[in-house]
């Protein structure tokens, strides 16, 4: 088409790459808090495999599906049979304590992903030679892991709550229990993120991290369950509750029941007394805070 006009002077061709040399950057530099936020977003997306390979999406997405599916079924059944109320033993906070193994597997699989890559490939010095401090790094990673667990635990409860409105159930009751559920989700997020990240910060090998987290979360659960049962059978019902201090999931479940006066699952585990309730609540918060502090200490010397 340019042949038709045939200009006297050759026009500069558009398809030539000109070496314009080095250009300096004089745009904005957004500093530490922006870098921390970017790392947070990236790590949060990374916990679900977003922005990473298809292979790394499979497990977190499958777990998300597994934890949501029963909620969808409950909603479907409730809507279909026109239930006026979800069965309390399987709704909101109690739903999470039933599904707690999914949370444990998610943490075991994804907490090492958040930390071990940077340790194994020695990428940390590149972060810390930038404005970001080691504390910012820990904040971003801890925040991202806790948020990822919160998404995982919050989503099925959101589904139930929306379902409750579709089935025209009691709005106030469902909103209230949805809120209790979110508190439980927040407890799970802080506690599990703390435990998972502290363990994975110790080893650059992902496999070790996965195994260690699974061991701590599920075996502690089993041991607590056995001790509880033994004491219960031998008539130490009030003291039996103390066995739960070593099990993260029972800790959250019983503390939430106590905090909001929910009748726990019939004769199931519950806090040993009001004092026990306070101790359990304090334990959750102390473990979360202590693991953050340990992580900050761990990353200071790099």
């Amino acid at each position: 088409m340019s042949e038709a006009t045939t200009p006297a002077l050759p026009e500069p061709r558009a398809d030539v790459i000109h070496d314009i040399g080095y250009r300096h950057y004089d745009g904005p530099r957004l500093g530490r808090s922006y870098a921390t936020r970017s790392l947070f977003t990236l790590s949060l997306r990374g916990s679900f495999g977003l922005g990473r390979s298809v292979k790394s999406k499979i497990l977190p997405m499958a777990l998300l599906a597994v934890i949501c599916l029963p909620a969808l079924i409950i909603v479907a059944v409730s809507v279909y049979t026109k239930l006026s109320k979800y069965p309390e033993t399987a709704s909101y906070p109690h739903y999470l304590s039933i599904m707690q193994f999914v949370i444990a597997v998610f943490v075991a699989a994804q907490a090492p992903v958040a930390l071990s890559r940077d340790l194994r490939f020695m990428t940390l010095p590149l972060y810390f030679s930038r404005p970001l401090t080691s504390r910012d790094y820990v904040q971003a990673k801890f925040g991202a892991m806790a948020s990822a667990i919160f998404v995982l635990t919050g989503l099925p409860m959101l589904i139930m709550w929306i379902g409750s409105m579709l089935a025209s159930m009691d709005f106030g009751y469902n909103l209230e229990h949805f809120a209790y559920g979110l508190v439980a989700a927040a407890f799970y997020s802080l506690l599990y993120a703390g435990i998972g990240l502290v363990i994975s910060s110790v080893t650059p090998r992902r496999g070790f991290g996965v195994a260690a987290i699974i061991a701590v979360l599920l075996i502690s659960e089993a041991i607590a369950g056995i001790i509880y049962a033994v004491l219960h059978v031998h008539g130490h019902a009030s003291g039996a509750g103390w066995a739960l201090v070593i099990s993260p999931s029972s800790l959250v479940a019983t503390t939430v029941d106590w905090l909001f006066g929910l009748s726990s699952r019939g004769d199931g585990p519950h806090v040993p007394s009001d004092l026990g309730g306070f101790v359990f609540l304090a334990e959750i918060l102390v473990i979360a805070a202590a693991s953050f502090w340990l992580l900050v200490r761990r990353y200071r010397k790099i």
């Binding site: 904005p28 890559r117 020695m122 010095p125 590149l126 972060y127 030679s129």
Partner: peptide, 28 residues
């Protein structure tokens, strides 16, 4: 700063990695 030792994750591309590091330096 360019460290002496290996510091690159093998499973991402150079573009992805350098973009990430640029953002860690505060670039939009």
């Amino acid at each position: 700063y360019m460290p002496e030792h290996d510091c690159l994750p093998p499973d991402v591309s150079a573009t992805e990695f350098v973009v990430h590091m640029a953002r860690m330096s505060g670039l939009p």
